[in-house]
Amino acid sequence: MSDVKNKGSVTIVLFSGEMDKAIAAFVIATAAASMAMQVNIFFTFWGLKAIRKEGGLIKGQNWMQKMLNVMNYGHAKKLALSKLNMMGMGPMMLKTMMSQKRVPSLHEFIKTAHSLGVKFYPCEMSMTVMGLKKEDFIDECGEIIGAVSYLAKAKDSNINLFI
């Protein structure tokens, strides 16, 4: 938000790649942004899936990276649940239940968060390990950062969450 007054800041590490956990992160992120707080989300490891672009199954430079990216394929509209996944039936049912209660989908949450000024930071090291590049991520992503830059933001934040 454009508010210059200091309303504090929130830094979230999204480590998990499941839809339910990513939604939890984005509910908090958008609520905090509505309160004019500065919000940073550091996407690391499995959490990177939430900001992956759709398509592009085979990614990476060597066979291990390629295999990992095929098996770990996912993006905001295609993520499993951490519980009751039931081979993909769980996410489908949850999406229906959420839209009935007019809770935004993860994809919508990402758009809203971005328009509220929430900053998205993909983790450089996870990207290198998985063989992913900046163009594999949605355009809303900001700078690619490392652990030190994350900690510099976390140190100055009032609220720090690891999801």
Partner: peptide, 14 residues
Amino acid sequence: RGLSCPMPAVKTAL
């Protein structure tokens, strides 16, 4: 109306 947490606060902020 019809929106659930946290969207009313988000819409209000906007």
